[in-house]
Design a protein around this nucleic acid. Structure first.
Lengths: 129, 129
DNA sequence: TTGAAATATGATAACGATTATCATTATTAT
DNA sequence: ATAATAATGATAATCGTTATCATATTTCAA
């Protein structure tokens, strides 16, 4: 049976309350301010848990370590290849539905059943032109 | 000036002649059959080159090391989360254009200039249902 | 051609990110 | 409360990748 722990709550809350997409290391550094004895392994362990349960999304960065997104509502990411900022882009309901239909159609081309879709656009963000 | 090397040619040709998406390690093992003295560092170095020149695409896998795709025409990937196979999915010209327009529109939402887009769908492939 | 300059190679050390190990501590259910 | 279970923190180990560097290959100009 799964047990409640202060650490897991803290990690969960922290990710839900921030809109950036920190690496495990960044999250760890920030959490130490609130809980100085927390260990980096605990952070990684709980990130795995939270990803498996679907509460958190793990994002594979093109340049750098994995990053974590506390927002599990479907959305798109834009990764700036200059400043490395990851932007969230939320589509309206209509566009989301269209995209979903597309994903299903595309998957059916190879007889596959889709579960999660990752759409990442890379390029220059507005601040880095 | 860039120099021609047997190794670079071999790596390039190998990636262009296979349609799977090998990891650097897999590629290395295969290349050793043809060129037993090739080093893993040479493989990595040339993969970096080939990716920078746009000849090859580096794919971030959700479970496992990076994989390399010798096909640089725009297409989509489906990653099976059971057998880890990466499938290519090619869209027709029309769908590609629509997608491209969408990417531009989406990027403009945050004032960004898109360069490359990565669309990966995960789920169960036809063989793993 | 040949030889000097430039660049790539292969062996391996070093590194960064992540996971495994394990003794200790915290949480849960009785 | 207490026993059972699961999580923690410290840190070792692992994995993928990059850096280093002496040697070898390639290129270009004479």
């Amino acid at each position: 049976m799964k047990k409640y722990s202060k650490q897991r709550q803290l990690i969960y809350n922290s990710l839900k309350n921030r809109t950036d997409h920190p690496t495990a290391e960044q999250l760890y550094e920030d959490l130490k301010l609130e809980m100085p004895k927390i260990g980096i392994a605990t952070v990684y362990r709980n990130l795995i848990e939270l990803c498996e349960s679907g509460e958190v999304i793990k994002l594979k960065s093109l340049n750098g370590p994995d990053r974590y997104d506390g927002n599990n509502k479907p959305h798109i990411h834009f990764e700036c290849n200059k400043c490395n900022t990851l932007y969230d882009i939320f589509l309206n309901e209509n566009d989301l539905k269209n995209m979903d239909d597309n994903i299903n159609n595309i998957s059916s081309l190879i007889g596959a059943k889709p579960e999660k879709t990752f759409l990442t656009i890379t390029g220059r963000c507005g601040n880095c032109t």
